[in-house]
Amino acid sequence: MIRVRQMKKIYRVGEEEIRALRGVDLHVGKNEMIAVMGASGSGKSTLMNIIGCLDKPTEGSYELDGHDVSQMSEASLALVRNEKIGFVFQSFELLARQTALENVELPLIYSREAGLTSRERTRRALHALNRVRLADRVSHRPNQLSGGQKQRVAIARAILNKPAILMADEPTGNLDSVTTTEIMEIFRQLHAEGQTVLIVTHENEVAAYCQRVIRLRDGLVLSDLPVAQDQAGQVIA
């Protein structure tokens, strides 16, 4: 599903070179659920941006769903994001003036599929909302929804186009512990239905929902272990 080889990312700020990634190798198989962890400055955001096709690596290859996307143009990457990647953000990023249903339909505006009828768009959006158990809130606007409901709308939007990977960046960062459980159960359920999930987090409780934990430090993979071993290691440390 995802194959990253010797990926490097170097930013130039004036004369200074910042080596955000210094040769990362990574493989994510179909239907895995992985937590990516690391302190700020570890290169985790850079890696996630590249995997999410929001950024390009300086060196190395990145194969997504069988295609090398490491050197694609900006417009082609936009299409890849539209069809293969679903994003969930810490602060939901819903459009305030649109209903839950309209928010979920958003990716279809930029879809390559021509001639989608409005009935078909609504059907798909309702199906996605149904999967996050929010079918009773379709015509509510974000300010009429709780934090957990907002994040569920955002997840529905992310899974609308049946993406190859669902990427969540601190999806529970703005939520209390009860809602965190609610949202993580949704991710677990989607994973059970066959969805590949990548979650960036700094909370061990969130990582505990995943099968595998990848830890980064200083632009390199520090550890890549099944969740049980990783959590055991954390307890010892």
Binding site: L54, A75, A78, L79, F89, E93, L106, Y110
Partner: peptide, 13 residues
């Protein structure tokens, strides 16, 4: 704009 780009809007769109 960032969100729209993330869900697949091209610069042209």
């Amino acid at each position: 704009i960032g969100l729209r780009k993330a869900v697949g809007a091209t610069p042209a769109a």
